[in-house]
Deep mutational scan, measured.
Amino acid sequence: MTFKLIINGKTLKGETTTEAVDAATAEKVLKQYANDNGIDGEWTYDDATKTFTVTE
């Protein structure tokens, strides 16, 4: 399955996707991606669209 991350950061905005077997696995990968890029904020997840959003 494809999961999307929408980034609403102070210095970085955009989106990325990852392939994962489930939402929990995708969340780990996407949170690591955000952490690697210095993004720390509030996370939400929409199961209907398989989209995570992080807002700083």
Rank of each mutant, 00 (worst) to 15 (best):
T16Y: 15
T2A: 07
D22H: 04
T49P: 02
T11K: 11
A26I: 02
E19P: 05
D47Q: 10
Y33N: 02
E56P: 09
E56H: 06
K4P: 01
T25A: 13
K10N: 11
K10V: 13
E56S: 07
N35I: 15
A23C: 11
T25E: 12
N8P: 03
K50Y: 09
A20E: 05
T18I: 15
W43E: 00
I7G: 02
D46W: 04
G14N: 08
Q32H: 06
T55C: 06
T17Q: 11
D47T: 08
I7M: 09
G41P: 01
G41F: 03
T53A: 05
V54C: 06
T18W: 09
G41A: 02
W43S: 00
K31C: 05
G9P: 03
K13G: 06
D47P: 13
T53V: 07
D47N: 10
E27F: 15
K10D: 08
T25H: 13
T44L: 07
D36W: 08
I39M: 05
K13R: 13
L12C: 14
E27S: 07
T16S: 06
D36R: 10
K28W: 10
K4V: 11
K13T: 10
L5Q: 01
T51I: 06
K13Y: 11
M1H: 13
N8D: 08
V54Q: 01
T55D: 06
K10W: 13
A20S: 07
T17N: 07
E56Y: 10
E15M: 11
V21M: 14
A34C: 13
N35L: 15
T53K: 05
Y33K: 03
V54G: 00
K13W: 10
N37L: 15
K50E: 03
A23V: 13
G14W: 15
N35Y: 15
T11D: 10
I7N: 02
T55K: 06
G38F: 07
E42T: 14
Y45C: 01
Y33S: 02
I7P: 01
T55E: 06
L5G: 02
V29N: 10
F3G: 01
F3L: 01
T25K: 07
A26N: 00
E56T: 09
D22N: 09
N35K: 15
T44Y: 09
T51L: 04
T2Q: 10
L30K: 00
I39V: 11
E56L: 13
T17S: 15
Q32N: 08
A20Y: 03
F3C: 01
E15G: 09
V29W: 12
A24I: 12
K4Q: 05
W43A: 00
Y45A: 01
T55Y: 10
T51K: 03
F52S: 00
V29D: 06
Q32E: 09
T16Q: 08
E15K: 06
K28D: 06
G38L: 06
D22K: 03
K31P: 00
W43R: 00
G9D: 03
L30P: 00
L30M: 05
D46G: 02
Y33L: 05
V29M: 12
I39T: 03
T11G: 09
T11N: 13
Q32S: 08
V21A: 14
D36Q: 12
E19L: 14
W43H: 00
T16H: 15
F3T: 01
K10H: 12
A34L: 06
G38E: 06
T44M: 10
T17F: 14
A23F: 14
I39Q: 02
L30S: 01
V21F: 14
T25M: 12
T25Q: 13
D22R: 03
I7E: 01
T16N: 05
Y45G: 00
D40C: 12
T49N: 08
D47E: 14
N37Q: 13
F52R: 00
T49F: 05
I7F: 14
K31N: 04
A24D: 10
E19Y: 15
T44K: 10
E42R: 08
E27M: 14
T25I: 07
N35Q: 15
K31F: 06
K4H: 10
L30G: 01
I39G: 02
E15Y: 14
A24N: 09
I6Y: 06
T11E: 10
T55H: 07
E19H: 13
N35V: 15
T2K: 11
V21L: 13
N8C: 12
A23R: 12
V21N: 12
E42P: 05
I39N: 02
K31I: 06
D40I: 14
T55N: 09
A26V: 02
I39P: 01
K31L: 07
A26H: 00
N37W: 14
D40T: 14
D40S: 14
Q32V: 07
W43F: 05
Y45W: 04
T44N: 09
T18C: 14
T53C: 06
A48M: 11
L12M: 14
T44H: 12
